[in-house]
Every structure is written in structure tokens, then in C-alpha cells.
Amino acid sequence: MLAARNLTWRAGGRTILSGISLMAAESEFLAIVGPNGSGKSSLLTLLAGLRPPRAGQVLLRGVDLQDIRRRDVARVIALVEQQAETGERLTARQAVKLGRTPHLGPLRPWSRQDDRIVDAALASVGMTGFASRPWPSLSGGERQRLHIARALAQAPRILILDEPTNHLDVEHQLGLLELVRARDLTVIAALHDLNHAAMFADRIAVLDRGRLVATGRPAEILTPRLLAEIFHVDARVEPGPDGRCFIRLLGVSRPAPEECPAR
């Protein structure tokens, strides 16, 4: 469905991502995990085609994203950014309606169908009652749910989510992940909560300092050793059903001094 081939990206005179090859199959949930600054958000913006990579390609069904018109990309791929704010006083419903943008045009004006799609998207994140509230009056979690609704209203085949559970309470965190997994969508999500990755992802990709260090099924990837080496935490991992697992975090690991060169 979506594949990255040998992606490299530089910014601010530094190499942020190097040599990343990765692919997400039809209807797969791919989680991307890694420490702060490891390049998750950067990778997701490249996968969404918002920036051209320095080297390598992102292929959508075999076609380079840079060769597809923006509008056609947006009909297939929706992105929820880690941070997206506005100073405009638009209403919750207007924010979700933006999701229909790539489907509309001079010959295809707003229709009842679009209204139905927007209503359904609002309902799916439990925000129907907030439809006419102005954006500045909404809480962080409510805004996040509306961002998700906007992405759903875009009716994409691929949903790219950058820390989608940000600001959400526990119920809505699990609710959101269940919601996107239940849809027949390819989901690529950067997640900080490793238990979320373990519960929901079909596969997990681990990024560290701009490099892909491992990909595989949750139970293969999330080992105590990897958690110590990449995330610097001590943890116990309990096996779960069908290739999943549960992680119990014990504390920050204290490596011997020579293992932790000054950065």
C-alpha cells in the first residue's frame, strides 16, 4: 500500500532520517515507536508526502508520491499532526468539514452526502454535541478528537497519526485506537505508549536517532533488551495472545557509564 524506500531527510544541517525502508500493507496497523527526537514526526510527514525526501522514495501503490498531484494524495492519505492549532474562531463542525476539501471542486460542490460524512465522523469520536462550539472554547482532548474526525471525514485509505492519543483520557485513548483499527484502513501511527503499540499494532517499527532499528510483531520487538537499549527503561514483558504482549515498566535503567557516551 505505502512503502518507503531508503528514505533520507536532512534539516538544519543535520541528517534527521537515514536509509529508512519500511512498508505498510493494506489494512495493516503499523506503529512507529522511538524516543523523543528519534524522527517519528519527520518520517510521518515524509510518508504523507508533505516534504520531498533528500534521497529515496515513498511509493503509494508503487507510484512515487512526489509524482502524484497533492489533491489525489489527499484523497487517499489523511494525516493528523502532532500539533495543529488555529487562532481562527471556526466551529467544531467547520473544522471537521475541512476534511472534505480534497473531494470538492468547482464541479463538485458541497452536498448532502458530505454533510452525512461529516456527521458520521463527528459521531464516531463522540463530538456530535459539540458541533457548533467555537474552536477556542474546546479542551485539548476535544480538539484532538476533532482532528481525528477531520481525518476520518477525508475518507482516506491510509490514516497517518502522529501521537493520536495526546491529550486524551484513558477511555478515549483506547476508544480512538479501537475505532481506527475497526475501520478497514491502513493505519500508521507514532505512539509513545508502548502498551498501546503492543495491544493494537500488527507490526511495530522502532526508530532511534533517525535510523530504523527493528520491525516486527509486538512480542518479537518489545523485549526487555530493546526497551533497555533504546528507551533506557527496565521492564518486564508478559506474553499475551496472538503475538501480543504486556509491558510492565519498572523504572529508568542505569547503564554502566561506558555504555552512555556523552551526547
Binding site: L50, R70, A78, E85, A95, T101
Partner: peptide, 20 residues
């Protein structure tokens, strides 16, 4: 419509299919 899509910034507009 394209101007509307800039509400959440240029990146969000691009993600909504606008040639920024």
C-alpha cells in the same frame, strides 16, 4: 476553499490536498 484549508497551517493545508 483553499484559504479555509489554511486554518491549521500550511502543513495541514497540504495534507488536505492544497498545492501550498
Amino acid at each position: 476553499r483553499a484559504l479555509d484549508a489554511f486554518a491549521f497551517g500550511a502543513n495541514a493545508a497540504a495534507a488536505l490536498g492544497i498545492a501550498v
